[in-house]
Amino acid sequence: MREFGYERAVDVSSAVTLLAGDPDARFLGGGTNLVDLMKAGVERPARLVDIRELPLGRIDFTPATGLRIGATVTNADLAAHPEVRRRYPALAQAVLAGASGQLRNMATVGGNLLQRTRCGYFTDLAKPCNKRAPGSGCPAIAGEHHNHAILGASAHCVATHPSDMAVALTAFDAVVSYETASGTGELPLTDLYPPVGDTPHRETALPPGALITGVTLPPGPLAERSRYRKVRERASYAFAIGSIAAALDVRGGVVREVRLAFGAVASRPWRAREAERVLLGGPVSAEAFAAAADAELAAAEPLPHNGYKVQLMRNLVVAVLSELAEEASR
């Protein structure tokens, strides 16, 4: 591991000023991904600015403004919060589906959004990887890719974003707040992760040196009827091979509102807007849900070993929407 300086920031402005003055500096939150990648040599910061003690550890909810989550809130505290569990159950379920109890106690919300892919080629310095070493190639396309992307990938990179939390946040129209040395800004979470294209090393649309300060979710009753479902290769403590966050409002047998986001299928949490469009105003049936899934997945371009994800996501859409519709009819 490269040697590095360490500073503990006490306020946001000094944290972003430290980053602005050193392009080799990184923010340290829980460290569950960054420290691991530093051990592997994938991350080689010259300086860490510890942001865990910044005053960004609050969760606030009001029916008028929605949910405001500070960037240094831990995953565990987010999933345990009564208003999160009451108003955005799919978000609590998504967080609880990720990692382990120990990791959720350490990991922060801001860090979760910025965590790196778990593609095995990305973390192996002996292998080419366009994300880690631009222009070196992508061995996953002809190699081990059974858990890689089927949507929105490119000939340069087929890695997936590993977060569960971000899938639920994407379904709920989350907005990310950030601060740099020159001011504050906001980005819809759907715009935080740019398309892969030929720049897979550009993973976020944040300006250089930006610190995520929080995430805001709009209010509204729709999210109260939501669910997160994760499929993985063992029963617990594994990354998804496919996941879904869904919220559904049914009135008079017609879909009045719906939100759908997919996980583990793309370089970012995948908002299924085409499926939402097909569902809106339509009937509530397994056939209608399957047709919506097919509309979304028509754009899928599976590789030789991950074609199963198309059927998996179709099944998840039908199963989870059917459950939410059945609950709405009670």
């Binding site: 360490y6 503990r8 340290l28 829980g30 460290g31 569950t32 420290v35 691991d36 860490l48 510890d50 865990r52 565990a76 109890g101 120990q102 990791l103 106690n105 350490m106």
Partner: peptide, 18 residues
């Protein structure tokens, strides 16, 4: 696994200085 401020955490990913 150790407890940090009463919560379980992984000491292998926790920098001592932090």
């Amino acid at each position: 696994t150790v407890l940090i401020d009463g919560r379980r955490a992984l000491s292998c990913l926790q920098l001592a200085v932090a």
